[in-house]
């Protein structure tokens, strides 16, 4: 576990995450704009409007511009014959080992944004936990799913 896993996820992940973040930030901006309008129409307190603007600007900078890149840089995975090794996290780096014989099922998922970039995420479930590798290219994701599924054989002693 000393070396990080070798594979990175698709570079398009950054774009997909940015679009998702923009959609969420749009909500924040709509609220901010309502605040500004209210300020001019019904004398809504200015300091609340200023806080709204500040929060929107800062959160937009972080979630749209800064975090997706850092997140992508840290996201790594590697699939061995006996186990799956995943690393992620920006401030808190988390590394996880999942033995193949503990894998119960594996699935690929694709939402509308991932679909636009021809990406898919892979979810790996054990009896106790679920781990997701987000935003792999469609082809890689399907191959990974098939590979893990073939390698995963549940121990007969297992529950």
């Amino acid at each position: 576990m000393r070396k990080p896993p070798i594979h990175t996820i698709s570079h398009d992940a950054i774009k997909a995450w940015r679009i998702t973040a923009i959609l969420y930030e749009a909500i924040a901006w709509v609220i901010t704009i309502i605040g500004i309008v209210l300020h001019f129409v019904v004398d809504f307190p200015l300091w609340i409007v200023l806080i709204l603007i500040a929060v929107s600007v800062v959160s937009t900078y972080f979630t749209v511009f800064l975090l997706p890149k850092l997140r992508w840089k840290r996201w790594r995975y590697e699939v061995f014959e006996q186990e799956i090794y995943i690393q992620h996290g920006i401030l808190v780096v988390s590394r996880t080992l999942i033995p193949m014989i503990r894998v119960q099922h594996v699935e690929t998922e694709q939402g509308p944004i991932l679909k636009k970039f021809d990406l898919a995420s892979v979810s790996i479930s054990t009896a106790a936990t679920t781990h997701q590798i987000p935003a792999l290219s469609n082809e890689v994701a399907s191959d990974l799913r098939d590979k893990i599924s073939a390698l995963a054989r549940v121990d007969e002693d297992d529950v």
């Binding site: 808190v92 780096v93 996880t96 080992l97 054990t126």
Partner: peptide, 16 residues
């Protein structure tokens, strides 16, 4: 060993 489903190690900047 055989009952443990997954292992995780977490570190933040100060930890590292």
């Amino acid at each position: 060993h055989k009952r443990i489903q997954a292992f995780n190690k977490k570190q933040h900047i100060l930890h590292r």
